[in-house]
């Protein structure tokens, strides 16, 4: 059973990536040190693991899972393989919000809130503009998103050119995605869990929606409800992920496609699997980002591309 094997491998990969994230860094921890730190609350290993590396790995997992799930939902709902979490101009809105906050010298929390508001504003703009005759056609949504993203890009360029050189460094990190300045609070993990569950409940409907809305409606899917629920959850996931970690590219586009190439297009498998794969990919990328040129930390967005592009191309060409 190929799909079963693939699921097992995926879970092993995920656990492996967490182990790697815990052990790798400025001080490399051995398996022994990791295990002894579980019981011994004194000492450096315990602090390193439980205060620095594990929280950061969890942040990476949750952001990666959110982006990958949002990408999967967007691709299925828009029936477009090029769709990603940012397709509706979300990242541009969030980036403009975040950059504005950085420009005014605000702290991490304000940057986060500002990015989140920018993302939501952008989403609402797209849906309001693309709305016609009480129905959204996916092409109209896509085009509105793309055009709006171009507008946001102008705002971002303007903010970059008018900022001082110290601020530009922080802004660039934000634009490329960076997991080093934010920490999880209590609600992100439950949010991802709930939305994954909701998406899983709708996953057979999603199978039909990805074959066309008329077809889905003719087979008994209440398309309006499914579309409304899943577009909102995908947008929420994107807005949260981007406000936590900046605009991290590739994960949301590629994780769903990688899985489709391996386990097929059944969303009942894809929904849980894409969360795990997205999370795993971002943990690996982030671990590399902070160790490759240590003590210099690279923006994680560079690593998601470096890891993602060759893997993706390999899977694509292996198929044909």
């Amino acid at each position: 059973m190929k799909k079963f094997q693939a699921s097992i491998i995926l879970v092993i990969l995920c656990l492996g990536s967490i182990a790697l994230a815990i052990s790798a860094g400025s001080t490399t921890l051995s398996a022994n040190e990791i295990f002894s730190s579980l019981t011994n609350e004194q000492g450096l290993p315990h602090t390193l693991i439980f205060e620095l590396r594990l929280p950061r790995a969890m942040l990476a997992f949750i952001c990666g899972g959110m982006l990958a799930l949002a990408g999967l939902l967007m691709q299925a709902l828009l029936r477009n393989p090029l769709a990603d979490p940012y397709i509706l101009g979300v990242s541009g809105g969030a980036a403009s919000g975040a950059l504005l906050a950085i420009l005014f010298g605000m702290g991490a929390l304000v940057i986060q809130v500002s990015a989140f508001s920018g993302a939501l504003l952008s989403i609402m703009l797209v849906f309001a503009l693309a709305h016609s005759n009480s129905s959204w056609t996916s092409n109209r949504l896509l085009l509105t998103g793309v055009v709006l993203a171009a507008g946001w890009n102008a705002v971002i360029s303007f903010l970059l050119t008018t900022s001082s050189s110290q601020q530009i460094y922080g802004m660039l990190f934000w634009l490329m995605g960076d997991l080093s300045y934010n920490q999880l609070s209590f609600w992100e993990a439950p949010l991802l869990a709930i939305i994954t569950l909701v998406s899983f409940i709708f996953s057979r409907h999603l199978n039909l929606m990805s074959r066309g809305e008329m077809q889905a409606a003719a087979l008994g899917v209440n398309t309006r409800t499914v579309r409304l629920v899943l577009f909102s959850t995908a947008s929420l996931l994107t807005a949260v992920a981007i406000s936590l970690a900046g605009s991290i590219g590739f994960i949301g586009l590629m994780a769903p496609h990688m899985l489709r190439l391996i386990i097929g297009s059944d969303h009942r498998l894809l929904v849980p699997a894409v969360v795990i794969l997205g999370g795993t990919l971002l943990i690996l990328a982030d671990t590399l980002a902070r160790t490759l040129l240590a003590p210099t930390q690279l923006p994680v967005g560079i690593l998601t591309a470096v890891l993602g592009v060759p893997t993706f191309l390999y899977l694509l060409y292996r198929r044909s």
């Binding site: 299925a76 477009n80 990805s210 074959r211 003719a218 008994g220 097929g264």
Partner: peptide, 21 residues
């Protein structure tokens, strides 16, 4: 919608399958 779909089936003029299936 579900009750209609148990009694009425539609063959559309074209299909929109985007992803492998």
């Amino acid at each position: 919608r579900q009750h209609i779909s148990q009694q009425v089936g539609v063959l559309f003029q074209s299909d929109e399958e985007t992803f492998p299936s």
